[in-house]
Design a protein around this nucleic acid. Structure first.
Length: 624
DNA sequence: TGGGTCAGTGTTTTT
DNA sequence: CACTGACCCA
């Protein structure tokens, strides 16, 4: 370890002094060992102050962005109760939860304002369009919520999932209510400061703007009794909610420690990410490599878009070339992890071989989160029952097969009352054998699996699947004419999803449990992988927030971009550059960037002109 | 008929 | 955010 890291740790430790508290903003770049510093400093803090905090009934609050980061820090702090580690959402909810009447009042005011805005828009807008219908529906649901508001005894909120109940608040409401209450109610500020004399915020660049500014204000008003410690890297702000000017407006009397060594990436990758952020006006943060880091490799593969492009073949080719270039056979041995980062889940789904299943269910907007975490009704039936059963059966693990059937099968429970154990077991075995015979020739479709389970009764079918399985083809046609209710929307989506092969559910299950070789550009915040492929493909991406084509000069900046630039605001190019920075900085050994583009020549030229890649590091693939 | 304005449309990431 | 298309006005 260099002295630089110790210095930052030392500064932070000095700030965390209950008698002379001092706030700080720690610049912690990619791979700088920030979590390790945090844990080290907190452990030292604990030995000096834990007892005093406990007597006063106080804790140190540590706020993270994701659940994964939260669990990681909790674990590394040995689940010590001196520390309250939570995501921003669960922390915020704990603060405001008791204030039912204030929440009710605030929500009421918001609803009234939103409804009147909608009415206004409805008068201004054209009648009969989708937008008008949507507005009408919104007015209806907001009015309904307004009417229901007085009957709410207690508001509910689930930080980790869907919040669809009558009494529930959504994610953004919890955050904005917290900012509002802290701003308006001195007592809330006092409770916060007294419960948590130290508040540390990880990934502060992505913390909600209103809330982070409120925390600044709380700190300003409670100097001498409150420490606010922000960790972050403004270059890694990749969510729209964060404060743009964070880091530029830090109060004079704060400490500004910096961890500028990158322990994660090899020198060539660090040079690339330094070059990427060099182009950001006003950002002078540069990282240095660790003495023991290797040189590493970066390559840019430029692919001209065309109709008949076989992307999977190109991406395989990239891995093989990377194996040859780096001398690291694990790039292409097919078993070692190579992480491929795509902009969107759908792009990952296409490459990961579960697109049909995923995109069908992605149409159910109300439970998209459930699709991403695998908790959507209908999915655990496959991932927790069918997939484990099939894999146990195929590896001839009889105990595991028996365990799964015993845990889930109504065949055993129900029949248990009227039959002898031997009959039961025979029936269950026949049901399992019948199911498994579907795999005899090739993979069955999910539909075939569902039909077979429906026939044998081996497992209980979730509602939507049961509806589909019980339908005869004539009732199915009748049902298609009437697709009004939300259940029908779900049933339709499931009908499409069930057409996919069993293999899709297997690769999907791996994806949502983070065992897949694919990830999204944003979802991999804070993670690291030895071999990284970054896929840039505007054409395949559906969204409009990022444009790699503009970043790489293949597409001219738009009038909106030029206007933003003139006004000193950030452009879509700035946003895309930061996302690109985050993806590239994940690599521990070597990095391959694949740029699918309408203008290969411009991409190559820009990559050279920016100084990001050398001529010898750019490889053109495809038709050219 | 040409130009200007603005509503409508598509739609992704995390909690 | 960027684009399309409806609509208004000269």
């Amino acid at each position: 370890m260099s002295t630089e890291g110790q210095t930052a740790d030392q500064i932070m430790l000095e700030c965390l002094n209950l008698d002379t508290p001092k706030s700080f903003f720690l610049f912690a770049g990619a791979g700088s060992g920030k979590t390790r510093s945090l844990v080290e400093v907190l452990k030292q803090f604990k030995s000096a102050y834990a007892k005093r905090l406990r007597i006063a009934g106080q804790q140190v609050a540590i706020i993270t962005y994701t659940n994964a980061a939260c669990e990681e820090i909790q674990r590394r702090l040995d689940y010590d109760s001196t520390f309250e580690v939570s995501t921003i959402h669960s922390f915020a909810w704990r603060l405001i939860q008791p204030y039912t009447e204030d929440i009710r009042l605030s929500i009421r005011q918001n609803l009234v304002a939103e409804i009147s805005e909608l009415h206004e828009a409805q008068e201004k807008g054209r009648a009969g369009t989708q937008a008008a219908i949507d507005r009408e529906r919104k007015i209806e649901s907001k009015t309904k919520r307004l009417g229901n508001l007085p009957t709410v005894k207690k508001f509910t909120y689930n930080p980790n999932g869907e919040n669809i109940g009558r009494d529930s608040l959504n994610h953004s409401e919890v955050i904005s209510l917290t900012a509002e209450f802290l701003n308006q109610k001195p007592i809330m500020r006092r409770i916060l400061v007294q419960s948590y004399p130290i508040l540390l915020i990880d990934e502060s660049q992505d913390t909600n703007k209103a809330l982070i500014n409120t925390f600044f204000e709380v700190q300003r008003q409670h100097q001498g009794e409150f420490t606010l410690g922000l960790f972050g890297d403004t270059m890694q702000r990749i969510y729209t909610d964060g404060e743009e000017s964070l880091g530029r407006n830090i109060p004079e009397d704060w400490s500004r420690p910096a961890k500028t060594i990158n322990y994660r990436s090899p020198k060539r990758v660090i040079q690339l990410i330094n070059n990427i952020r060099e182009l950001v006006p006003g950002d002078d943060q540069q990282q240095t490599g660790w003495d023991q880091s290797g040189e590493g490799f970066v390559r840019l593969f430029v692919v001209q878009n065309s109709e008949q492009l076989d992307k999977s073949q190109i991406e395989q080719q990239v891995k093989e070339q990377m194996a040859a270039i780096t001398g690291d056979p694990e790039w292409a041995d097919g078993v070692s992890p190579v992480k491929t980062l795509c902009l969107e889940h759908k792009m990952a789904a296409r490459r990961g071989g579960f697109f049909q299943f995923f995109s069908a269910l992605a149409n159910i907007k109300s439970s998209y989160t459930g699709l991403l975490d695998g908790k959507m009704r209908g999915i655990p039936f496959f991932t927790k029952q069918i997939v484990p059963l099939v894999s146990a059966f195929q590896s001839e693990d009889k105990f595991e097969v028996a365990r799964i059937v015993r845990s889930y099968s109504p065949l055993l429970n129900k029949a248990a009352l009227e039959s002898t154990p031997i009959e039961l077991i025979t029936r269950a075995r026949e049901a399992v054998d019948a199911l498994m015979s579907l795999w005899d020739s090739s993979y069955p479709t999910l539909q075939e699996i569902v039909q077979e389970i429906h026939r044998s009764g081996l497992f209980l079918l979730p509602e939507e699947l049961n509806i589909i399985a019980s339908r005869s083809s004539s009732t199915r046609e009748a049902a298609e004419e009437d697709q009004e209710s939300p259940l029908d929307e779900k049933v339709l989506a499931w009908e499409a999803a069930l057409q996919s092969s069993y293999s899709e559910i297997v690769t999907y299950a791996a994806y949502i449990s983070d065992e897949s070789e694919f990830g999204t550009h944003q979802g991999i915040k804070g993670l690291e992988f030895p071999r990284v492929v970054v896929v840039l493909d505007d054409q395949e991406a559906g969204g409009f927030q990022w444009s790699y084509e503009k970043l790489l000069g293949a597409k001219a900046p738009t009038t909106a971009d030029l206007k933003n630039e003139r006004e000193g605001k950030e452009t879509s190019i700035d946003k895309t550059r930061r996302l690109f920075y985050v993806t590239c900085s994940r690599a521990e050994k070597s990095l391959a960037v694949i740029a699918y583009t309408d203008n290969a020549a411009s991409v190559k030229q820009s990559a050279l002109a920016f100084g990001w890649f050398a001529e010898s590091e750019i490889i053109e693939l495809g038709d050219t």
